[in-house]
Each structure stands twice: as structure tokens, then as C-alpha cells.
């Protein structure tokens, strides 16, 4: 346990150090990928309990808008404060929606969570105060009074993303080994047994839903600061679909899956788009089919096969 925590922190420090030497475009790409990785780590908690949310875009977008709106309204650029606010608002909304959602399973859970994110999309598209479907620009972030300029511009958001990733990574790694983490598997496998062992299935799902919302809000907030621009598209169902895609691509068997999936996804998307702007979606779609058919446990399962000596 100590060993894993040290490893994750070590990886974080290495990423931060590497960030100092990275070209700007790569820093930017990785920041967005890590932010998505955070959202997908939350999704991982749900998926391990057998629940696929097609609506994590709701909290991703809400978190981003919180950062954008609060930054304007309170005239603050304090990155930490804004992100904290984003997480709190997301958890508060999840606390209400979760009460309803934890009654549903399977495709109903998927579709119902999608419906909620589409409601936010519908509201934002019609809100001229927030730029309607064009969205609006977010002011560059400040950290303890320091605002990076020029070359080191993207580095602040990158640093935030790495620190958040390390924190959430350690949490998820430990969580998956805790009674609550195991209870998720148990809910997926057999709800009747869970109830007869004395735990409330709804409470377990509710807890996971809140955690997932917090992580999605965190990812959305960081995205807003990194990208400097937000729009309602973040709540559109295709964004949520992307998160599920990433989860599947990376694999939900390990805390590292979502991060690897997110980086691969962003790279794949960027290169696919550069190589053939008209068929990048097709390339994504084909990759998804290949993964479902041949790597149902995601890319991370390849790593596990190698390290644990399982046959390929």
C-alpha cells in the first residue's frame, strides 16, 4: 500500500519535471487528457459496480461552467478556489439527482443519466448570458498570486492536472481495495446477497455516484482553466460517450486504466484528425469495435498480462 502510494507520487513528480521540457502543444494535450482521465476515474467507480453512466458530461460541463462563471462573478482567478467550488457544486447537484438515479440499473441508468446531462445542455444552449451555444472565454488562472505567461502559460493548468491526478489516483487505488470498493463489485455481481449481508445497495451506489460527480467536476474545472474556453458541447451526450469510450479503452480493472485510456484517446483523436480530418470519427469507431472484440478489459489488461506473466 505504501509502495503504491510512493509509486504514484513518484510518477506525478516525473510528469511535473517532464512538463518543464515539453513543447506547449504536448503540455496542452496532456492537460486535457489528464482532466478527462479524472472524469473517467469517477466513471470507473460506477462501471465496476455494473453501472454505465452516459451522462458524466453533466458534471464535466457543470464544473467547467462553475469555474468560468464564478471567475467572472467573484472577479477571482484563484485556481484552487474555483476548482474547489466546482467540485462542491457538482457534489451538491449529484446529491439530489443521485437520489433518483440510484433506483435504476442497466440501460435505464445509462439513459436516465444521459437525459440529465442533456437537460443542462438544453439550458446552456438557450442561456444568452453565458454565450448560448458558443460558450464563453475563461480568464487565465492564478495560483497564489502567480500567473504564468508566455512559454510557461499552459504549465499551471498542467501542474494542477497532475497534482489532481496524483491525489485522485491514490484515492482510487486505495478505494478499490477498501470494503466500499469491494462492495461495488458485490453490487454488480449480486444485489440480493449484498442486501442479505446487511448493506444497502442504494447507499453504495449513491456514494459512488457522488464520488464520480466530484471527480467529473474536478476534471471539468481543470479543462476550463486549461482550455480558456467552454461551451455547452461539454454536456452533450457525445462528450459523455467519449468518457465511456475512454473507460473501455483503458480498462476499468485498475486505477491506471482511465489515465492511459485518456492519453491514448487524445493522441488517437489528434493524430486521426491530422491524418484525415474527414474520417477521424471512423477511426475512433473502428478502434472502439476492435477493443470491444479483442480487448474487452481494455489496454491496461495488456500491461497486466505482461507483468503478471499471464498468457497473451
Amino acid at each position: 500500500m505504501k509502495y503504491a502510494t510512493t509509486m504514484i507520487i513518484g510518477a506525478g513528480i516525473a510528469l511535473l519535471a517532464a512538463g518543464l521540457f515539453m513543447p506547449g502543444w504536448l503540455t496542452f494535450l496532456l492537460t486535457l487528457a489528464f482532466a478527462k482521465g479524472l472524469v473517467v476515474m469517477g466513471l470507473l467507480l460506477l462501471m465496476r459496480a455494473g453501472l454505465v453512466s452516459f451522462g458524466q458530461g453533466l458534471y464535466y460541463c457543470l464544473g467547467a461552467y462553475c469555474v468560468g462563471i464564478a471567475g467572472d462573478y467573484f472577479e477571482t482567478q484563484n485556481a484552487l478556489l474555483l476548482i474547489l467550488l466546482a467540485v462542491v457544486v457538482c457534489v451538491a447537484l449529484a446529491a439530489v439527482i443521485g437520489l433518483l438515479l440510484c433506483r435504476y440499473r442497466d440501460i435505464f441508468f445509462a439513459m436516465f443519466s444521459m437525459a440529465f446531462s442533456m437537460i443542462l445542455y438544453g439550458v446552456l444552449v438557450k442561456s444568452s448570458a453565458f454565450g448560448s451555444s458558443d460558450g464563453f472565454n475563461v480568464k487565465p488562472p492564478l495560483l497564489f498570486g502567480w500567473t504564468p505567461t508566455g512559454e510557461s502559460g499552459p504549465f499551471l493548468a498542467y501542474g494542477l492536472a497532475v497534482v489532481a491526478l496524483v491525489g485522485v489516483g491514490i484515492f482510487v487505488w486505495r478505494y478499490l481495495r477498501s470494503p466500499m470498493g469491494y462492495a461495488g463489485e458485490a453490487v454488480r455481481e449480486n444485489e440480493i446477497r449484498v442486501e442479505y449481508l446487511g448493506a444497502s445497495v442504494r447507499r453504495i451506489i449513491y456514494t459512488k455516484y457522488l464520488l464520480a460527480a466530484a471527480m467529473a467536476g474536478l476534471g471539468g474545472g481543470i479543462t476550463a482553466l486549461a482550455a480558456g474556453h467552454i461551451d455547452p458541447e461539454m454536456a452533450y451526450w457525445t462528450t459523455s460517450g467519449e468518457f465511456v469510450f475512454i473507460a473501455l479503452m483503458g480498462g476499468v480493472g485498475h486505477a491506471a486504466g482511465p489515465v492511459i485510456g485518456a492519453v491514448l484517446f487524445e493522441l488517437l483523436r489528434t493524430y486521426a484528425f491530422q491524418i484525415s480530418p474527414y474520417t477521424w470519427q471512423m477511426i475512433l469507431g473502428i478502434s472502439l469495435l476492435v477493443i470491444i472484440l479483442y480487448l474487452p478489459k481494455g489496454v491496461w489488461s495488456l500491461v497486466e498480462r505482461v507483468t503478471k506473466g499471464k498468457p497473451l
Binding site: R174, R177, P179, A183, G198
Partner: peptide, 14 residues
């Protein structure tokens, strides 16, 4: 794990 804890812990190992 479920029997011992009325509220399931999130961080301590099982």
C-alpha cells in the same frame, strides 16, 4: 467487510 462496518470505509484495505 459489510458485517463489521455499518458505514463502509473508503480508504482502509479489506
Amino acid at each position: 467487510g459489510i458485517m463489521k462496518h455499518k458505514i463502509l470505509p473508503l480508504m482502509s484495505p479489506l
